[in-house]
Write a protein that binds this DNA or RNA. Structure first.
Lengths: 231, 231
DNA sequence: GGCAAAATGTGATATATATCACAGTTCGAT
DNA sequence: ATCGAACTGTGATATATATCACATTTTGCC
């Protein structure tokens, strides 16, 4: 339940990054459209789930709540992202709750449809393996970051994750987040108290690393942000 | 670079859990044996890597060091575990350093051998996807745990991870770790200071959740330990 | 356009954990 | 079997972050 590719950013076309055109066409054909209103829940953690979803438009968040009631955001995902793909591959229940942040159009691919597709075209297996491998790498890095990086760094890391899910690269190289995100969301991603997220974000704004345009965050200095997030 | 299956524990046979006999035989045939002396390094993080390794005997640790020089242990793995499988699937460099904790016998499967195998028998693809999916679930859980659980809980979680890599279930239900592990290692897994790991471990020993036999840790109350590690 | 509800900023504490400083213990190599 | 090195236990402090308690601003909605 994470970003679907490093350094994507482009938001226009139909096929998600990493997916070649032919595979995409097969996918689109086998999948069925689903619509979501803002704040609607696609599925809950613990539900049994069949298949995965591809976001055609809109944005969602994936979250879990811990025993003490804290909401922890795993990711915020936009167009082109794939969600719920773990349930494709094993029979465990959904590991996170997915909620629409604004109206969404999705494509739903059932498990059986996926395997029909993949068996017919083993390239699909390779793509899927690659995708999972990438996510696993990101996830491992997150684990390390979590333990060895300060609040400021974890906030920075959250912004880079947001950028991968929602970012739109501007002509001048800045990255604009195409969805409103609250401090609580960011705090939930970084695993810090909302108040401290507020302080850290303001430091970044003051330092010119982040900016705001019309209530949306923008990343003014992506490399600087990356350095801060470095493990 | 993590445990290869929930609730395994059995250590005798040859095929790693989840891998059916036929697949295993093909694997063994295509792979080449490698030996490692204690403390020898199999590969470093950042190396370019070809293929994966299966542990036939011995134990290894997978670790990364963060920018500030802290060593972070991702896992300690024993017989039957698969390591380095991420490099099978993409062309990124090794994400962790793997070091032998004692003399090891491994099997090495190159990338090309893997794909030859898998293309001939798509079942292998499904197995690999399942394995990765499981690791991704574990990893996601780790991320959440890291942020929302106290030192004691993270230590407990480290012991359950150790048990999956090294545990041997006794007749009476206790789990014995088949490898000496230092407090520094455990602290490195939990991402806490060694001194505090010491205190937490002693609390667990005093509480009877853990025990020691001849310098090896044993898990006396696996369910209790699980509760403490719960997110 | 106005108003309740949500989100934000910021100081003053409280607390968990890291860090420092050692002394005691165990281990492994000669 | 001995001795040095690595590992361990435990207090005393330092520090980062959470928590509490608000005033202030923004947002979304009837």
């Amino acid at each position: 339940m994470r970003q679907e590719s490093k350094r994507s950013g482009k938001k226009s076309g139909k096929p998600p990054a990493l997916m070649p055109w032919r595979a995409w066409r097969a996918f689109a054909k086998a999948a069925v459209p689903v619509e979501l209103r803002a704040k609607e829940i696609l599925f809950h953690a613990g539900d049994e789930g069949d298949g995965c979803y591809l976001i055609r438009s809109g944005a969602v968040k994936a979250s879990v709540v811990s025993v003490d009631g804290q909401e922890r955001l795993l990711a915020v995902l936009g167009e082109g992202a794939l969600i719920g793909e773990l349930a494709l591959l094993d029979d465990e229940p959904r590991s996170a709750t997915v909620t629409a942040l604004r109206p969404c159009r999705l494509l739903h691919l059932t498990k059986s449809a996926f395997f029909r597709l993949a068996d017919a075209n083993p390239l699909i297996y390779r793509l899927a393996l690659r995708l999972l491998a990438q996510r696993l790498r990101d996830s491992n890095e997150s684990v390390v970051a979590q333990g060895s990086v300060t609040v400021q760094g974890r906030i920075a890391r959250s912004f880079t994750a947001l950028a991968e899910g929602l970012g739109q690269v501007q002509a001048d190289g800045r990255i604009l987040l195409t969805q409103r995100v609250t401090q609580s969301d960011i705090a939930g991603m970084a695993g810090v108290a909302r108040e401290n997220a507020s302080r850290a974000i303001n430091d970044l704004l003051r330092g010119g690393v982040l900016g705001r345009v019309k209530g949306f965050y923008s990343i003014e200095k992506p490399e600087k942000l990356g350095d801060l997030a470095e493990v």
